Simulated assay, not measured.
Amino acid sequence: MDIGARLQRVRMAKDLSQRELAKRVGVTNSTISLIEQNKVSPSVSSLKKVLDGIPISLADFFTLDLDAGPPDSPFYGAGELPDVGSNGLHYFLVGQHRPQRQMCILREVMPPGGDTGDAMLRHEGEEGGVIVQGEVEVTVGDQVRVLRAGEAYYFESKVPHRFRNVGDGEAVIVSANTPATF
Rank of each mutant, 00 (worst) to 15 (best):
V94S: 12
I56E: 04
E80Y: 02
V25D: 00
G85K: 02
R122H: 15
K48I: 03
G77A: 11
V94E: 10
A171N: 09
E127F: 02
G129M: 00
V136I: 13
S175T: 14
V132W: 03
H97A: 12
L121S: 07
E80V: 08
Y91D: 06
R6A: 04
L89N: 09
E170D: 15
R98H: 10
V84I: 11
P71H: 09
V136F: 14
R148D: 05
G77Y: 05
A119P: 06
M120S: 09
D83P: 04
D15L: 12
V138I: 14
G150Y: 15
Y91I: 04
S57A: 04
D118S: 15
M1R: 08
L93C: 14
D83I: 13
L93D: 04
V166D: 03
E108D: 14
G117V: 10
F92H: 09
F155P: 01
G134H: 06
L51E: 09
I54K: 03
T181N: 15
R107D: 06
S43R: 01
V140A: 06
Q18W: 02
L16N: 00
R19V: 05
G88V: 07
V140W: 04
H161F: 04
H90R: 15
P179D: 06
C104H: 04
G85N: 06
V44P: 00
P111Y: 11
V136K: 04
D60I: 01
D15C: 15
F61I: 05
D67N: 12
V172P: 05
C104P: 00
E124K: 11
N38Y: 07
N177P: 03
P74S: 12
G150P: 06
N87E: 15
G26D: 05
R162N: 14
M12D: 13
G167R: 07
I35V: 14
G128M: 03
V140Y: 08
D52P: 05
G114Q: 01
F92A: 02
Q18R: 14
R6G: 10
R164Q: 10
G134L: 07
K23T: 15
F182N: 14
K14D: 08
G26T: 13
K23S: 12
Y153D: 01
H90E: 11
